[in-house]
Design a binder for these strands. Structure first.
Lengths: 132, 132
DNA sequence: TCGCACACGTTATAGCATAACGCAATTGAT
DNA sequence: ATCAATTGCGTTATGCTATAACGTGTGCGA
């Protein structure tokens, strides 16, 4: 499921997220796109829905925000579970993958026959610069 | 930081969560407590804030809900990072701890000097019974 | 050319969370 | 004893997040 050509709205939303230097809420995206004709939240949410599906955007559940995938061009879904470190001071997000964490969680689900569809790993705290 | 005696509102909210067989949203808790005099969301949120602080209740970020800790009596914070498997069909939540996952994430944060304050691990999917 | 799938636009509404104000009870130091 | 600080509580109002429901247009294959 590599990303097909984006529609106009999808491209606009993705562009905003890529140019941002941190995660954005749907409503912030909406505000940034008013000049491009966006008027309602659904225009943003519908685009986001597809971008999430294509794996080019991630949703940060713990802060109700969205961020462009850190691996442009690749299919991020292929890397396994995605984890995030979110700085609560500067808003920077670091995306990473850890196969050992994947393995442990997968082991757990297998042992309990739990069928995981979507896994969230998010650490909130302070990045090196902000903790100083 | 073991839990001190709960106030009336805290006890009511905790009781509702403990008796529930799954996570509840703040507004659902509010509805269940109207007979006990609850009238506003803040009454619930303020109680939840303390219960979360005491570690006797967990917040499920991915579904905006709250659940009583699976380890009554103990201080759950001591067990390290808490992880959840949430069945999207029946709503059941399984809480678990995996020290190896903790270690991997801690290693990552140490390497990047990231100071993690709160870590969320949530798997959504289908439990064994519902997947059948 | 008909039907279907999909993107899109709009209005309205539902669901989640907190700000800001004021009051009452408790505690603890002076 | 009294004053100040803290904490919990109640209320009103508001803001933020997300989706329902309806309709339009476009492209494309049967």
């Amino acid at each position: 499921m590599s990303a097909p050509a984006l529609t106009k709205n999808q491209a606009l939303v993705f562009d905003v997220l890529e140019k941002a230097d941190g995660p954005l809420s749907a409503y912030t995206i909406l505000d940034k796109l008013r000049d491009h004709g966006f008027r309602a939240p659904l225009q943003v949410y519908r685009a986001l829905e597809k971008l999430l599906e294509y794996g080019v955007v991630h949703r940060l559940e713990s802060i109700n925000s969205f961020v462009a995938c850190a691996h442009p061009g690749e299919n991020c879904h292929k890397h396994g579970i995605v984890a995030f470190a979110i700085c609560e001071s500067c808003g920077q997000v670091m995306e990473f993958h850890d196969h050992e964490v994947d393995n442990r969680l997968t082991d757990w689900t297998k042992a309990r026959k739990f069928k995981a569809e979507k896994t969230t790993i998010e650490m909130r705290g302070l990045c090196e610069a902000c903790a100083a």
